[in-house]
Amino acid sequence: MQKLLFVFALSILLGAALNGCGDAQPQQKHAEQRSGLTKVGAISWLTPQDDVRPEVWLIEHETTAGSKPSTGDAGEVHRSLVAASEKFHDTPRMIANRAVQLERMLKEEGGDETAIVLISRLNGAVAPGRIESFGAAGQQYYNMRKAGFTGEQAIDALSKRYGSPS
């Protein structure tokens, strides 16, 4: 009986030791480092570590880009970002980044829509769950604009394809 208990205890110890000797490296928990960024300045992409709210970043981006701000109301932009986040299942930060990216792409093609306006327009054109992401909606909008559609025609086409089913 003692021999059986010894073998049992030895097998438990051996199993525990082998369990700790896997090939996987132990995961280190890194504290998220904040960037300390509180002003837009010349940044072109809002990271998760930046301490700027996406709505503030968008308004400041519009101002520093030389555009007449479409709105100075951070609350209005925040509500638009929240609605887009719920609709497209992206974070407000990612939507802000994608909208600025779309704005730049359109400006290279002669467009003049701001990121804030683009968020609002795409929010109005696409129903929840009808397209993969804000980036996908923006890419389709861009493709139509590049193909010669006006902004209104492109939004109308997106609304017909991805709007609320009738």
Rank of each mutant, 00 (worst) to 15 (best):
V7W: 03
L10K: 02
I12F: 06
G15Q: 07
A16Q: 09
A16M: 12
A17T: 11
L18S: 06
L18K: 06
A24T: 12
Q25W: 12
P26D: 13
P26C: 08
Q27A: 15
H30I: 09
E32Y: 12
Q33P: 09
Q33K: 15
Q33G: 11
S35P: 06
T38R: 15
K39F: 13
V40S: 14
G41H: 07
G41M: 07
A42F: 02
L46V: 12
L46P: 12
Q49Y: 09
D51W: 04
R53Y: 11
R53H: 14
E55P: 13
E55Y: 09
L58F: 05
L58W: 06
E60V: 02
E60F: 01
T64E: 12
A65D: 11
G66W: 04
P69S: 02
S70A: 11
S70P: 09
S70L: 11
G75F: 00
G75R: 04
E76R: 14
E76P: 05
E76L: 14
R79Y: 12
K87I: 08
F88I: 10
P92R: 10
L102G: 00
R104M: 10
M105P: 01
L106H: 01
E109W: 07
G110T: 11
G110E: 10
G111V: 08
D112V: 13
E113H: 13
I116N: 05
I116K: 04
V117R: 13
V117A: 12
L118P: 02
I119Y: 01
R121C: 00
R121N: 00
V126F: 04
A127T: 09
P128D: 04
P128T: 05
S133N: 05
S133Y: 05
A137K: 08
Q139F: 08
Q139K: 11
Q140A: 06
Y142W: 03
M144L: 13
A147T: 06
F149A: 14
T150S: 10
E152I: 13
A157G: 03
R161S: 14
S166A: 14
S166Y: 09
